[in-house]
């Protein structure tokens, strides 16, 4: 017999929806604010006062960004690195996580320890740089993929999830002669969609947003990532280099399309965040109730 909705329930629902709505507004504000600024004339934005709506509408900020050379190429590079990097990383991470989730695995304790400790130690930038250099990975696409292939944190999260799945699943399959690969990919993975989707999200966002490895290792233009190119655009506006427009504030005609750092930051954030906002809802379907564990009766 299912309980019907009582008064307390309605009170809670009211509170919940209300609270979540408020929270949504509060967290949406920065984004709307940035959107407004990015669509506002940059010189007009200087004096502040833009909150949710542009005061002097223009698409000039975006136009200026899109007119940058190399932006398309950089987007492709970022796309390639995100797709390839995420796929490989999630694949390898999952395999590793599977192994250390198996109770009888000989290396289980050792690998666990190594993994966890690795999250808290850092040798510094110079040795890391020298390592990459010695591996001849500087100025290459693979420096984006390989060093970051295994994220210890991700491994542990997936491992923990696997450990919580009933033991019997794997056991019965192995008794039937299935290989570890089969157990992992045919049985465990389909049941782990929520956590795998989460890790995929984390890794892909990391790839999409990264520019630091670009700064460190790659100087060739054709290896620039999107974020790196956008950073360049930001830097262009911040640098006060000795040109006429920069030195004097007294130029007569208002210089059209001057990009202030504030406007660029706003537009950059929108450009980088928007794709993620589109992708995430598609991933959300994996967060809905997972497949029922029906293979075993406990």
């Amino acid at each position: 017999m299912k309980r019907g909705y009582g008064a307390a329930d309605y009170a809670f629902l009211l509170f919940n929806y209300g609270f979540l709505f408020l929270l949504g507004c509060l967290t949406l504000y920065p984004f709307l604010n940035l959107l407004a600024i990015s669509l506002n004339d940059s010189i007009d934005s200087v004096r502040g006062g833009i909150y949710l709506w542009p005061r002097d509408f223009t698409i000039g900020n975006y136009r200026a960004i899109f007119q940058t050379d190399n932006l398309v190429a950089a987007t492709l590079v970022s796309l390639a690195r995100t797709l390839i990097g995420t796929f490989l990383s999630v694949l390898c991470t999952t395999m590793l996580a599977y192994t250390i989730s198996r109770r009888g695995f000989v290396l289980r304790k050792a690998l666990n320890l190594i993994l966890i400790m690795s999250m808290y130690v850092n040798g510094g930038l110079i040795p890391y740089y020298l390592l990459i250099k010695n591996l001849h990975m500087t100025n290459s696409f693979w420096v984006y993929i390989i060093p970051g292939l295994i994220g210890a944190f991700n491994v542990i999260i997936i491992r923990s999830y696997f450990e919580q799945l009933p033991d019997g699943l794997g056991e019965s399959a192995r008794i039937d002669g299935a290989s570890d690969f089969a157990v992992l990919f045919r049985i465990l993975v389909p049941l782990s969609m929520p956590v795998l989707a989460t890790i995929t999200l984390f890794v892909s966002v990391g790839h999409w947003n990264s520019w630091f490895d670009n700064y460190l290792f790659n100087s060739k233009q054709n290896l620039s990532t999107l974020q790196y190119e956008l950073m360049k655009i930001l830097l262009k506006s911040v640098q006060q280099v000795s040109t006429d427009a920069a030195r004097s504030g007294k130029v007569d005609r208002a210089v059209a399309n001057t990009l202030t750092p504030q406007s660029i930051r706003a537009s950059m954030t929108i450009l980088v965040t928007a794709p993620i906002l589109f992708v995430y809802p598609f991933m959300q379907r994996y967060f809905i109730k997972g497949i029922t564990v029906g293979a075993l009766k406990e």
């Binding site: 991470t93 590793l96 695995f105 690795s118 130690v121 040798g123 890391y128 060093p147 295994i150 570890d180």
Partner: peptide, 21 residues
């Protein structure tokens, strides 16, 4: 099989995290 699925990746991790130490 478990070893195959773990050792290469751990080697990578150790290379990039512990070696620079």
């Amino acid at each position: 099989q478990l070893l195959l699925m773990s050792i290469p990746f751990m080697a990578l991790l150790i290379l990039f995290t512990y070696v620079p130490l």
